[in-house]
Write a protein that binds this DNA or RNA. Structure first.
Lengths: 221, 221
DNA sequence: GCATTGCATCAGGGAATCCCGTAGCCATAA
DNA sequence: TTATGGCTACGGGATTCCCTGATGCAATGC
């Protein structure tokens, strides 16, 4: 709009330095954006928001260690008005709805053209929500007739926590290790595992581990 | 600005435009590199090599559609002297050795600092091979005490029975079920599992299950 | 011949897990 | 308000994991 107004300060959260550099370059070349902070993990992201007060955040949901959904929940819990755009390499059908439920204001895949990202940021700064047209259509239909077309993956019926545990199982982590990863009781992880087994209709624990490994590896050879 | 020596022409292959932009920015800011072409998939990558004759390629192994390992094999088959550096978000323990066997000259994770990437490129252009120190050490040790281990998968050192058990583990069978499958004592299966873990240098049972599942799946492909 | 080595089979026992419930707390939906 | 679902956690018995052996058998080596 008017070049007089100050540029929007953007925080970038991604654990890949090269991706961060690409985002910095991309956004700083736009007339209305300015990257004011970068963070490689959830802890640094929270610190950066508190310190430099950005106008908006761009976060990857697959960070090292903790996952980005938790980060979004934490951010929204502490700064309810801070808008977050999720930038992910994973297909929107997997994580977009979860991210929005967690409080994100938009979801863009890394496969998209850079213009989609800047467009999404402007839309969000304008108080709106951004998702792709395809997903928008899907969510609309879902809102209308209640139950939309069957979800692509049975994993969709898992809760956020259960999905997180499933991913760690698929990475070869045991119950005890997952409990430490998430700072939870072993008993809690056992509970999550039981619920995962039940929801995915898997009979035994080894079958569940197999499913988890295959699921985590899908899309990768 | 007097380029005494001509800059190395670099081809970038990655299906994420934002990552490509980051790489372009990173490399073009170096005095000795110049991005001469970008490709989002394997087909365009082959075309770009044929057209602009780059000096080196930086390729992501998780492209959409076909996988990057196949791309590397194709590149090496057609241009045996064209050096390829793999840039991946996945841990080197998963794909580095396979990438090198396919003909890549190096492997760098996206989690690494950008300097690692440029350093690896210079090393490769110098005719050497780049992997992380950790992986280098691992491969050295492997080459020393496992003399005939160059072209064999680690599974080759397993006995017939152990291999049979590994396959059943990879199919999601538990210890008790495997014992029934093979009409053996549970204790015997436990023993085989212990030996498998030891021979494959796996620390925990869940890690072994993960390995088994992946191995069984890739054997099928 | 006989020792060495590797394979396959099993046992004992303590630690960790799996599996079946139960249950409090909280947020959201009806 | 009640109901529902998700996250957390516990108890207790069954099972598996993990380590240390131990036996018989075949092939290999000197």
């Amino acid at each position: 709009m008017k070049p007089v107004e100050t540029k929007a300060k953007v925080l970038i959260v991604d654990d890949h330095p090269i991706v961060r550099q690409g985002l910095v370059q991309l956004l700083n070349c736009e007339p209305d954006f300015m990257v004011c902070a970068e963070a490689a993990n959830a802890r640094k992201a929270m610190a950066a928001i508190a310190e430099v007060k950005p106008d908006i955040g761009v976060v990857d949901i697959t960070l090292q260690g903790a996952n980005g959904i938790e980060l979004i929940k934490n951010i929204v819990a502490q700064w309810p008005d801070f808008p977050v755009l999720v930038l992910s390499m994973h297909d929107e059908s997997l994580y977009a709805e979860r991210a929005l439920r967690a409080g994100a204001k938009g979801y863009v895949m890394k496969q998209e053209a850079p213009e989609k990202l800047t467009g999404a940021l402007r839309r969000i700064l304008n108080g709106q929500i951004y998702v792709s047209e395809k997903l928008q259509d899907k969510m609309m239909r879902k809102a209308i007739d209640g139950k939309a077309l069957q979800d692509t993956s049975p994993v969709a019926i898992l809760s956020d926590r259960e999905l997180e545990v499933l991913q760690l199982i698929g990475q070869g982590h045991g119950t005890r290790q997952i409990a430490e990863d998430l700072s939870l009781s072993v008993k809690t992880i056992e509970s999550h595992r039981a619920h995962i087994k039940e929801k995915l209709n898997l009979k035994t624990a080894p079958e569940m581990v197999r499913f988890a490994v295959q699921w985590v590896n899908q899309g990768v050879l």
